[in-house]
């Protein structure tokens, strides 16, 4: 690779990094994840957002074969992922919530364990990160600060040299400075190695500068999936007098009616959509967009009146 423009984002092209088909997981009678279809592009940094209990961790654990699906399949770079299927598992590196390490182990012990557990193992990469962090190899995990533990867990995951890095709530337990340092390391790996990253979070505000693909999950279902910029630019908020006009607007995601006026979130298709002059149209920020989709009612608890808004628009 040479030159600053040699990194092709290539979103939406070529083979997807991660695909799920009809993926589902039940715990007894509880549906944690239901009918999940995803196709996520290689080289993207994908933010998986949703409230607690939406199914984010379940999805990530299915992607990393820590859970067996009740139905459906997961493929990472075309290789099926399931327990015992080495070809698929080697494509995925995972950092679990709270960045677990073996407390009594030194960093050198962790490196040795990584070597024994992985066919592909880049010890030099991990050692270089430890050196950058000023962490001696004899240091034990329990003597590290929270931010250092996160960085060590990340370095060990990157040393696996897997093309897909999965992070479960990586920022939740970190202070703002440690968050910044953690994401800076992840973004550098994306820039250098074309890594694909799938990370869950319930903090939307921090995701805009790092992610270029958004997946919104709620009630165990995918509500929205697509390139962040396209999703933001294709949604408009319309405000206007409460009239029967509302019925004539296509692509309504949700609507609210007061006595005299109505507010609607619409998903548009054309380059420059035209609305009736009575409607004022404005853009919507990423955070408000996510909230609007999260506030949609659970589709399981209402009759299927209209097509669900979960489809991904092709570029």
């Amino acid at each position: 690779m040479s030159g600053p423009l040699s990194i092709e984002p290539n979103l939406g092209g070529d083979a997807p990094a991660l695909e799920t088909e009809r993926l589902g997981k039940r715990y007894g009678k509880v549906r944690a994840l239901h009918d999940c279809w995803l196709s996520l592009p290689a080289g993207a940094v994908i933010a998986l957002v949703g409230p607690n209990g939406a199914g984010k961790s379940t999805l990530l654990q299915l992607v990393t074969a820590l859970l067996e699906p009740t139905e459906g399949v997961v493929r990472v770079f075309d290789a099926p992922v399931r327990a015992g299927a080495a070809a698929g598992l080697e494509q995925v590196a995972f950092v679990a919530q709270d960045h677990p390490l073996y407390r009594g182990f030194t960093l050198a012990d962790h490196l040795e364990m990584g070597r024994r557990l992985n066919r592909r193992w880049d010890r030099t990469l991990a050692e270089r990160r430890f050196a950058e962090l000023d962490l001696p190899l004899r240091r034990r995990a329990k003597d590290l600060s929270g931010g250092q533990q996160a960085q060590v867990a990340l370095a060990l995951a990157l040393a696996k040299r897997a093309p897909l890095l999965v992070l479960d709530e990586p920022l939740a337990s970190l202070d703002p400075l440690a968050r910044r340092e953690f994401m800076s390391t992840v973004m550098a790996a994306v820039a250098e190695d074309g890594l694909t990253v799938l990370m869950s979070s319930h903090v939307v505000a921090e995701l805009e500068r790092v992610s270029d693909w958004l997946v919104v999950l709620s009630h165990g279902r995918v509500r929205l999936s697509g390139p962040v910029d396209d999703l933001v630019s294709s949604h408009r908020v319309l405000t206007g007098p409460r009239t029967e006009l509302a019925a004539s607007v296509p692509g309504v995601v949700r609507q609210e009616h007061a006595d005299r006026h109505s507010t609607m979130l619409v998903r548009t298709t054309g380059e420059r959509p035209e609305f009736h002059p009575a409607w004022q149209s404005r853009s919507i920020g990423l955070e408000d967009l996510v909230l609007a989709y999260l506030e949609l009612p659970d589709p399981a608890s209402q009759p299927p009146a209209q097509p669900s808004p979960t489809e991904t628009s092709p570029r």
Partner: peptide, 14 residues
């Protein structure tokens, strides 16, 4: 791109 990524902790694709 690398300098910007290091400086801003931003997605290189951006």
């Amino acid at each position: 791109v690398k300098e910007a990524v290091a400086e801003l902790a931003i997605n290189p694709n951006t």
